[in-house]
């Protein structure tokens, strides 16, 4: 049976106003698409990574690194639990840098002899301030917020701060000059 003939028979069997028919058809299709869309949204919302409930600034994310005097000038101390390095620069300033390479996310070890962070994955290297000294890493190591209260160094590990370059304001100093 040809397509035309079939259509004709159909129309004879169900005589209907064609415009109304096509309107209803479109309505059904529209509603169907809407339902699919809603369903997709629902699935997305369900799959979205849930917040753990821990926010930056909560006491749980703040790590007490230790008294200021404990850290030698020009030294780097690793904090495994907080996933960061505490760097004390030559002028006594502090930085808390993330251990995550900004290239693709490998963990960078600090090489004390060579005085640099060297990524084992694709050979990026960073200096003590986290600045790139060897690409492919595109930007300096991320920072965590660091503050000094009563001569105690504390680091808020709740939020990683991206930076495009090293700037002097990023360094935190103890209030009084240490002796």
């Amino acid at each position: 049976m040809s397509e035309k003939k079939r259509k004709k028979i159909k129309e004879e069997q169900f005589p209907q106003d064609p415009s109304r028919r096509s309107f209803l058809n479109k309505l059904w299709i529209g509603l169907g698409i809407l339902a699919l869309f809603e369903f997709a949204l629902l699935v997305m919302a369900y799959l979205r990574p849930s917040k753990t409930g821990v926010k930056s600034g909560d006491s749980e994310t703040i790590i007490e690194a230790g008294p200021v005097a404990k850290f030698h000038l020009d030294s780097v101390t690793a904090f495994i639990r907080g996933k960061f390095y505490l760097c004390r620069l030559e002028d006594g300033g502090f930085l808390a840098v993330s251990r995550k390479c900004t290239h693709l996310g490998c963990t960078v070890p600090w090489l004390d002899k060579e005085k640099r962070f060297a990524c084992p994955c694709h050979a990026s290297a960073f200096d003590i301030k986290g600045e790139v000294i060897n690409p492919p890493a595109p930007r300096p190591l991320d920072l965590y917020r660091l503050f000094i209260e009563n001569n105690m160094v504390k680091v808020d590990t709740g939020k990683r701060i991206k930076r495009s370059e090293f700037r002097a304001e990023q360094v935190v100093y103890a209030k009084k000059v240490q002796t």
């Binding site: 495994i80 251990r99 963990t107 070890p109 084992p120 694709h122």
Partner: peptide
Amino acid sequence: NPGLSPNPT
């Protein structure tokens, strides 16, 4: 071990 990337990765 999330703390140690092997070389090379």
